[in-house]
Simulated scan of single mutants.
Amino acid sequence: MKLARKLLTSLFICLLLCATASASQPGTPQELAKFKNFAIGWVVKLNKSHIKGFSRMEILPQKDGSYLARYHAISPDTISCKVKRTSAKSKGMVGLLKYIETIYESTGKNPQEARANKFKPVKNIRITEIFSNSGKGWR
C-alpha cells in the first residue's frame, strides 16, 4: 500500500511538473548546457549502479545446456535534454532527460564463455526522467 501511494504521488508530481513546464518559457542556452552536464553525470551514475549493469550481469542457464549473459547499459550518445522555466514566481526550472537503455546479450557453452563472447543489442527501452531545479541544483 505504501508503494502504491508513493507511485501515485510521484505520478501526480510528474504530471504537475509537465503541465507547469509546458506553459513556460524555454531555458537559456547556458541553463541547457548546465542541465546537459548534470544529465551526463547522472547517466554515468546510472550505468555504474544499475542492478542489471555490466558489473552485475545476469548469467542464465538455457534448456539446451548453454548459458546466456545479459546486461543493461545507457549510451551517452542517446541523451536528449530540454530545459524550461516554470511559471512560478520563483526561479524554478524543469529539465527533461530522455535516453535509451539497451539490453545486451551473449551466449556460450559455459558462464565464462558467455561473459567473454561478443554481446549484441537485443532490446531498446526509451526512458524519460523529469528533474527540477529551484536554485539549489538539479534533483
Results as ranks from 00 to 15, higher is better:
K63P: 05
S80N: 13
L60C: 07
K34S: 13
D77G: 03
S55D: 12
Y71E: 11
K91A: 10
K52F: 07
K91G: 10
Q112H: 10
L68A: 08
S55M: 09
I74A: 00
S87K: 14
E105M: 08
S80L: 08
K120P: 07
N47S: 09
V43C: 10
K118I: 15
F38H: 00
K82T: 10
A116M: 09
V44H: 15
S87W: 13
F35M: 01
K52E: 15
K91Y: 04
V83T: 11
M57Q: 11
L60K: 15
A69P: 08
K120F: 13
K36L: 02
R85H: 15
I51A: 13
T78A: 06
K82E: 13
K120H: 13
I59Y: 02
S90C: 10
I79L: 06
K98G: 10
I40W: 03
L46Y: 13
Y99P: 05
A88D: 12
V43W: 05
D77Y: 02
Y99K: 05
P76E: 04
K82N: 09
V83C: 07
T107P: 03
P111A: 01
A39Q: 02
L97Y: 06
V83G: 12
H50N: 13
Y99I: 05
P29F: 11
T28I: 11
E113F: 02
I40T: 05
I40S: 07
L60F: 02
V83M: 09
P29I: 07
K120G: 11
K89G: 09
P121I: 01
S106L: 02
R70N: 09
P121R: 03
K120L: 13
P76R: 02
A33C: 11
N117F: 10
V43L: 14
A69M: 07
T78R: 04
L32V: 01
P61R: 02
G92W: 01
H72Q: 15
K52L: 10
K63A: 05
Q62G: 10
P121F: 00
C81D: 03
K118M: 10
L46M: 14
L60M: 15
M57W: 09
Q112E: 14
T86Q: 12
I74E: 02
E105Y: 08
S49Y: 15
R85Y: 07
S106H: 01
A88K: 01
I40Q: 06
A69H: 05
G65P: 07
Y104I: 05
K34W: 08
F38D: 02
Y99M: 07
F54D: 01
E58D: 04
L97K: 09
S80V: 11
A73Y: 04
Q30S: 14
R115A: 15
E58M: 11
K84N: 15
L96Q: 04
F38V: 01
K36Q: 06
K84W: 12
F35K: 02
G95I: 08
S90A: 13
Q112D: 04
S66C: 07
Q112Y: 09
Y104E: 00
T28N: 14
M57I: 01
S49D: 14
G53R: 00
I79W: 01
S75L: 01
G65D: 10
I100H: 11
T28F: 06
G108F: 02
Q62E: 14
Y99S: 06
C81G: 09
K45C: 11
A39S: 06
Y71V: 07
K36T: 11
